[in-house]
Amino acid sequence: MRIARWCRITPSSVVVDGKAVSVEGTGSLLLKDLYRKFIGDYPKFFKMDTLCRLGVAGAALLDSPGEPREDRAVLIFSASGPLCNDTHYQKTISEEDYFPSPSLFVYTLANIVTGEISIRNHWKGDTSAFVIPGFDAGEIVASTLSCLADPVTRSAICGWAECSGDDSFDLLMVLAARDEGGLPFDAETLDYLYGRTYQEP
């Protein structure tokens, strides 16, 4: 597998294939600006929690929705999963004010981000959410490569999507594909890309 494209999003910067993307605002405003510049016609974005917005924005930087396809996997790794949204939902089930919110509850599942990316892009392939203690390039690469045991899978949107607050997130997403040019899809490269939060001079 080779890395066809990659992107890096932090609360204050966006890098795509090594080049800085000009964005306005930081934190949640930065994600809204990415929506305006790279998505634009998908109001469902604003119903999503921050983790899903982060994942959907990252995928939009790497590819555009096209015909439905089954050969594209979506694999998301994180440490906190939906913990940020868990706290939002918990507030709706307090003793004093018990009105559980179905729309918040759905986003308390770690894999909803993979579903939102799939829906937006019409990708009907393998989707999985994994929880690990921290960014681990070796684990991300090994787990993604093992998904190629499914002969239908030809490419994967995969990476690290961590969210600890509405203005606090961290994403490294790559489009890795069989038999295509680009950077090597290995732990060393992913570690290097994870450090690239700015444009090198």
């Binding site: 999963g81 599942l109 770690a110 894999n111 909803i112 993979t114 989707t127 999985s128 959410a129 994994f130 929880v131 690990i132 684990e139 090994a142 787990s143 093992s146 998904c147 045991a149």
Partner: peptide, 20 residues
């Protein structure tokens, strides 16, 4: 590693284990 794929998690964990 934790597989957290909603209600299919258990089967995904077995699939992930087999592939690994």
């Amino acid at each position: 590693i934790v597989v957290s794929n909603a209600c299919i998690s258990g089967l995904c964990a077995l699939i992930h284990a087999t592939r690994t």
